[in-house]
Design a protein around this nucleic acid. Structure first.
Lengths: 217, 217
DNA sequence: AAAATATGATTGTCAGACAATGCTGTCAAG
DNA sequence: CTTGACAGCATTGTCTGACAATCATATTTT
């Protein structure tokens, strides 16, 4: 399922390293370093870097080389806004298209999420959320929406992780997803859209509170 | 303004070649060929290809190499749908944010567009449209929306060119843009959103009619 | 005719090289 | 003491050439 070429593996490694904070936002990367760390040639590395640059996880400036992307709150907020719009639309479409299997999958993912919340397991939460959304996006029958959302969410991964650590946010989040799922199961498209948008807005608020150096709006 | 590195130039060349139909959709590209045509090394070429792949202008399958992306009508329609949503939002935001200079620029672009229509100048039409939208997106103060739209529009460039050739479509299009601009000048955000969405929907319909092998809906 | 195999084309990956550009710190001039 | 020119190092941009892995096609075998 994942391409097995060296450069894709390298890209995946770097991606995880960035998500896990091995490299700080804004930090400059040096090709030679990465090459020896990943044990690949510069040619392959540079291709991997192009992939990450396309995902906006790194910035690639000619003659200055790669650096880890850093995001301003303004930009993060824009992403949340667009995400709300797209995710709302996805929910709307999914409400009338999801089959029983997909709904079951979503419910299972939600249960898993709640377990992870109770267990205070950050990785588990992220995984369960991904499962939940994958099922919904798979059923919304718009590869374009799914693709754009995936790209946007990747760019705020670390914000999500951080904001989830706020007391009570994870539990709130579970409730919001539960409501969204209820609308989907009831085939209430408009309700699903509203629930999805509401969830993103609340996630955005939580992220704002956790963002370094931003006061309330 | 455009990066002057060899690989960016190559990417731009290939982009134009694809837009201009030098390569047919689905056609397989051969690295060695492209290298000699562009007179660059394989390493640089492959980086350029990664850029185009990120823009979805080509498909890059491991061990099978690059081929020009081909789009199904279903996918094109998804793109038009999302484009309508985003462009509507952009118009909504722009209505309350555009300054006088930007509005003037848009009006100038519209005049240019109408001249190009009268002159039956396809390249002129595309250029003027780009100018029009650049001004609007610049004023909507959402780099994310602008960025996503740019990506989506690039993927349907050849559809736009083709559908514009339908008798009367270009003139209609001018009228729709004129209405959109009128709303923006009147600071009517909701009207602007509606006008923008309507314009995209009509463009979509025109594209459908021009799409090879698709009947009416 | 179908399956198996051999052959050639193409991609994936590497190593090493060198010029162009960017960065840093020294030194001289104001 | 600050500023600016300059030298030297670090890093990137790009190329060449190579070889193994994989794919595609033609040929042979069953």
């Amino acid at each position: 399922m994942v391409p097995k070429t060296v450069l894709h593996l390298a890209a995946e490694n770097l991606r995880q390293a960035i998500f896990n904070g091995v490299f700080q936002p804004g930090e400059r990367l040096v090709e030679a370093d990465l090459c020896s760390r990943l044990d690949i040639s510069r040619a392959s590395l540079r291709e991997a870097l192009r992939i990450l640059a396309a995902e906006k996880l790194i910035t690639l400036v000619p003659n200055r080389g790669p650096s880890v992307a850093s995001i301003s709150w303004a930009e993060a907020e824009e992403i949340y806004d667009v995400r709300a719009m797209l995710e709302g639309e996805a929910a709307f479409r999914a409400a009338t298209r999801l089959d029983a299997g997909a709904l079951r999958e979503m419910r299972a993912a939600l249960v898993e999420f709640e377990r992870a919340v109770a267990r205070r397991d950050p990785a588990g939460r992220l995984g369960a959320t991904a499962r939940f959304y994958d099922a919904m996006l798979g059923g919304c029958e718009s590869a374009v929406i799914a693709e754009l959302l995936q790209g946007l969410v990747a760019r705020i991964t670390f914000l999500r992780a951080r904001s989830m650590q706020r007391a009570g946010r994870a539990r709130e989040s579970a409730g919001e997803l539960r409501r969204l799922l209820a609308c989907l199961e009831a085939r209430d498209a408009s309700g699903a859209r509203a629930a999805a948008i509401d969830h993103v807005h609340r996630a955005c608020a939580a992220a704002r509170a956790a963002f370094p150096g931003v006061r309330a709006a």
